[in-house]
Amino acid sequence: MSERYYAPTGGHPPQTDLLTDRAIFTEAYAVIPKGTMRDIVTSALPFWRGTRLWVLSRPLSGFAETFSQYIMEVQPGGGSDRPETDPGAEGVLFVVGGRVTVHLDGTAHALGEGGYAYLPAGSGWRLENAGAEVARFHWIRKAYEPVDGLDAPEPLFLNEADIAPTEMPGTNGVWATTRFVDPADLRHDMHVTIVTFQPGGVIPFLETHVMEHGLYVLEGKAVYRLNGDWVEVEAGDYMWLRAFCPQACYAGGPGRFRYLLYKDVNRHAALPRRA
Score class of each variant (00 low, 15 high):
D21I: 06
D81F: 03
A23C: 05
R52Y: 12
V74L: 05
G62S: 09
F67Q: 01
G50T: 14
T51Y: 09
S43T: 12
L45D: 12
A64F: 01
F67H: 07
E90A: 13
S61V: 11
W48S: 13
R22N: 14
E27Q: 14
A30L: 12
T66Q: 07
L53A: 07
L53V: 04
G50H: 03
V92L: 00
I71Q: 13
R38I: 08
G91H: 04
T85M: 10
G50F: 01
K34L: 08
S43E: 15
S68K: 05
A30S: 15
P59C: 07
E73V: 08
Q75S: 14
A89P: 00
T51G: 06
V92R: 04
L60F: 01
D21Y: 10
R22C: 06
G79K: 11
P46C: 07
P46N: 00
P46R: 04
P46G: 10
G35Q: 02
E27W: 02
W54L: 02
D21F: 09
I32N: 08
M37E: 12
E84S: 08
G77V: 07
S57Q: 03
R82P: 00
L60G: 04
G79T: 08
T42Q: 15
P76S: 09
P59L: 04
P59I: 09
R49A: 12
W48C: 13
D81K: 09
R58M: 07
P76T: 12
